[in-house]
């Protein structure tokens, strides 16, 4: 019989069940994920050829099994690997996207660890963001240290740590946009917790990598992975999308959520002044719209050409993110095409 597997005790944002992200965000997540998986399949085919399927499938199983290995960290909890950065360093970012997608799908379907409708978002968070952020940080830090072994390990640590920070920021934004958790709380909480969890991820990635480097350095094919420029554009797109959602609120005069919550906590009696920007008109609340509209955390957030209604704001926000992302993917494809032309001439 199959052994009893305990699912990896994942940190909260990582295997979100259905219900915590809004339906529209979830659908957008699926669309982005399918596009990325399509690109990843094309890119890895040229890199790995016919080995693509067995290699990525079995490495995926190893990452999954590796996630089950816990080690005790302070506070009575245990840390474990997420693995996106590790997979990306070994196989390259695109192959890592496929490996992590398979991991998330199996976790969601077989272990109900992560929802089905929100699976697209979970794949973006755990697979796509970690792969690209981790990989690029790794590459650049490593180059900074002139490709020495120490530089490689430093890069791996930085990449793994940063990948968790960025992905936790994404998760916080997604929760806030879905109306599940106010940005002012979700963001510092998520990023704070993950700056600790990230240390574990970083250490595990470094030690796993140095083991592979010592025993089978020939296996580290990620260095030769194709589509790196394309991947660079994807990363830029992701980060821009995050920056826009994160800093747009800060530009608005009323929305310094952090400060507001700090005040609220300091002086509970004054809490009546709309804590953390939940200045939602009460009608909206009782129409059942409360919490579904992302930018109600920013009461005066206006998109001039779209008017001020809640629905159009959501649409605007999502379209914005999609446009930024689409541009990045488009640029990525262009780079690819041009490169091919260069090769063929």
């Amino acid at each position: 019989m199959s052994p009893i597997l305990s699912a990896p005790p994942a940190p909260p944002p990582m295997h979100a069940p259905d219900g915590f992200f809004s339906v529209w965000l979830s659908i957008a997540g699926w669309i982005i994920t399918l596009v990325m998986v399509g690109l990843a399949i094309r890119n890895t085919r040229s890199q790995l050829g016919e080995r693509q399927i067995p290699l990525m499938g079995i490495v995926g199983a190893a990452i999954f099994a590796g996630q089950m290995l816990n080690f005790t960290i302070p506070g009575g909890t245990s840390g474990h690997l997420l693995g996106g950065t590790l997979a990306a360093i070994i196989l390259g970012p695109w192959a890592s996207v496929l490996v992590m997608t398979a991991v998330v799908v199996v976790q969601g379907l077989l272990f109900q660890d992560g929802g089905l409708l929100v699976m697209g978002i979970n794949i973006i968070n755990m697979g796509i963001i970690t792969s690209f952020v981790g990989y690029f940080t790794y590459r650049h830090v490593k180059k900074l240290f002139k490709d020495s072994r120490g530089g490689m390990l430093a890069g791996a640590f930085a990449g793994a740590w940063l990948s968790l920070i960025v992905t936790s920021a994404f998760a916080a934004v997604e929760l806030a946009v879905s109306g599940t958790s106010p940005m002012g709380i979700a963001l510092p909480a998520m990023v704070g917790v993950h700056s600790l969890i990230g240390v574990g991820e970083g250490l595990l990635t470094v030690f796993a990598l140095s083991f592979i480097f010592a025993t089978r350095p020939d296996l580290l094919t990620g260095e030769a992975a194709p589509g790196q420029k394309a991947a660079g554009w994807v990363l830029t797109g992701l980060l821009l999308a995050l920056a826009i959602t994160l800093f747009a609120p800060l530009a608005s005069p009323y929305s310094d959520g952090l400060e507001r919550i700090a005040e609220a906590f300091a002086e509970p009696s004054e809490v009546e002044i709309a804590p953390v920007g939940f200045a939602v008109p009460e009608e909206a609340v009782f129409n059942g719209k409360f919490g579904e509209s992302p930018y109600e955390i920013l009461p005066d957030y206006t998109v001039p050409f779209l008017g001020e209604s809640g629905a159009s704001t959501i649409v605007a926000g999502m379209i914005g993110v999609l446009i930024v992302f689409g541009t990045a993917v488009g640029l990525a494809t262009l780079t690819r095409v041009r490169k091919k032309e260069e090769l063929s001439t």
Binding site: R51, P54, L55, G57, I58, V59, A61, A62, I63, A65, G66, L69, N70, F71, T72, I73, G79, L81, L86, I90, G200, L203, L204, T205, V206, F207, A208, L209, S210, F211, I212, T215, R216, L219
Partner: peptide, 22 residues
């Protein structure tokens, strides 16, 4: 760090074996 090293090496060895199996 000691614990992370032990666990990290185990993960590394799982990956190496996965490669060889593939």
């Amino acid at each position: 760090i000691f614990r992370a090293r032990t666990t990290g090496r185990m993960i590394g060895s799982l990956l190496v074996r996965a490669f060889e199996r593939s």
